[in-house]
Design a protein around this nucleic acid. Structure first.
Lengths: 205, 205
DNA sequence: CGCTAAACCCAAGAATTATTGGGGCTTGCA
DNA sequence: TGCAAGCCCCAATAATTCTTGGGTTTAGCG
């Protein structure tokens, strides 16, 4: 092997970053080139410096991981592996639809992360046994949202304005309003202020 | 020093455990004697083998960390440091009342954990700056809302539009916007979509 | 009593968001 | 193959919401 596989870590917990460094230090096939603690910086980073694999946390203080994922796969064809601490299967399912190449829980043995990387490099999508079980139990959603609608729903849940959303997704403001109208229709609410509440009732977040 | 300070880690994420091992391996004053991934096993462990310091996660699949804490401090006088990944300040406040000797977020620099251990050994209670700020918001003087502001807050929580609210209260629409701006200011949020969320945090609803 | 602060209100104009109408794309199905 | 339905997008325009700058009233205080 001439060159190692470059890895970007995106996780807001320094202690988890340390754990990942220790893990990958035992596999000289991989090299961590950067570890970031904010989703926004991650989107920017991969623009200027693409990496082979992104290890992405779903829960970060600034941006939802799925939205980072959407931005990354939207601009570059990069391998993203989801590393989640919670059992948010709806969101994980959505991440897979967006193009995540692997899903591992922080409660899984660390080797699962390596397994996911191996699978991704081989062109497969790896979901750890625990996560696979959770996903299979996920009852088919009574309300089916498209990926765009889901992305915008997540931004809404974070309290972002339409303008901010249009900027992040690089689409026109009326397009955001259009998707919001679709969310209102599908979730059967009359008012934008009820969208997030209803989505939570339906476990869409 | 004749003997090292013994440490028990209780956290359901192996990768976090790795990070902690790496961290404490750089401080030969401490020695990790065990790392457990379930709260129930932790309660049992310290009965048979007391340790100097317990690093305790709040979010575990089987038992809430606070319940483990209650059992530990109830039976043995042991130093427990809370290591939390979420901003659950109500629960953290409760943990401190129960007798936790330190609080650190997983989003804090790892050194904060060492600082908390040092403080605990010196007999102090250490709360990291980030956590301290969150806790202070809990304790800060209750936000005083006028009756008009409170009325409008309730309408907002029900998802009513400004127009509907102006209609119900028989006031002009800009007046509603004015009161909403006051709510934003008093609740210290930047965006209308966050008002209700913040009000719930403060138990104003 | 005058002064200040805070709550309440509104008109007008600025800013944001929604709707309409239309286009392109893909998928499944007749 | 052609058609219908869903998704995604946007420009232009409509509707809503926000801000600004002003006004009134009340309450506390030196």
């Amino acid at each position: 092997m001439t060159t190692k596989h470059s890895i970007l870590i995106v996780d807001d917990h320094p202690i988890t970053q340390s754990g990942l460094r220790l893990l990958f230090s035992r596999h000289d096939k991989y090299e961590i080139v950067e570890a970031l603690d904010r989703g926004a910086t991650a989107s920017a980073f991969v623009q200027s410096q693409p990496v082979d694999i992104v290890i992405l946390d779903l829960n970060m203080p600034d941006v939802r991981g799925v939205n980072v994922l959407a931005e990354i796969v939207g601009s570059r064809d990069m391998t993203v592996i989801i590393l989640t601490g919670e059992s948010q299967f709806q969101e994980i399912d959505y991440a897979l639809k967006l193009g995540a190449r692997g899903v591992v829980s922080k409660a899984d043995p660390p080797d699962e992360i390596i397994a996911a990387c191996e699978a991704a490099l081989a062109g497969d999508v790896y979901v750890s046994p625990q996560m696979r079980e959770g996903l299979s139990r996920l009852a088919e959603a009574p309300v089916a949202l498209s990926s765009r609608q889901m992305a915008i729903l997540h931004y809404l849940a974070q309290g972002e304005s339409n303008k901010e959303i249009s900027y992040r997704l690089s689409i026109a403001q009326p397009t955001v309003s259009f998707h919001i109208a679709e969310l209102r229709r599908k979730l059967d609410v009359s008012n934008n202020r009820k969208i997030v509440e209803r989505a939570q009732e339906l476990n869409l977040l």
